[in-house]
């Protein structure tokens, strides 16, 4: 029996990625961690990370072959706003 995967909007995926990065705190999150936690393909991950950097929600730190991602102040503020919207939507039974 096949199980239907729940639909996730783009903004929800971006919020999931930001939450993963936030959870890693000062150490920052590597791409593999984000990929698994946000349940993404590699291509999608690259595309969304570029978008998050472009929107200044995260910043990238390259150390040799290692890449780490950190939440910016704008990213933290986005997550706070997103949480509020999630509560409002959930109250009316709307998935975001």
């Amino acid at each position: 029996m096949s199980r239907k995967r729940a639909y996730r909007s783009k903004v929800r995926i971006l919020a999931d990625m930001l939450r993963t990065i936030q959870a890693e705190g000062e150490d920052g999150a590597g791409p593999t961690k984000i990929l698994y936690a946000a349940n993404l393909s590699h291509d999608r991950l690259t595309q969304y990370i570029e978008e998050l950097i472009e929107k200044e929600l995260i910043k990238e730190l390259i150390d040799g072959d290692n890449r780490s991602y950190f939440l910016t102040q704008k990213g933290r503020e986005f997550l706070i706003e997103y949480r509020k919207i999630e509560r409002l939507s959930q109250a009316f039974g709307i998935d975001v």
Binding site: R12, I85, F92, I94, D95, V96
Partner: peptide, 18 residues
């Protein structure tokens, strides 16, 4: 107003209808 702000961020049509 708040539902409209939420729509602006998420583009979820139901929030616009709300």
């Amino acid at each position: 107003h708040y539902a409209n702000v939420a729509f602006g961020l998420t583009r979820q049509k139901k929030l616009s209808d709300l």
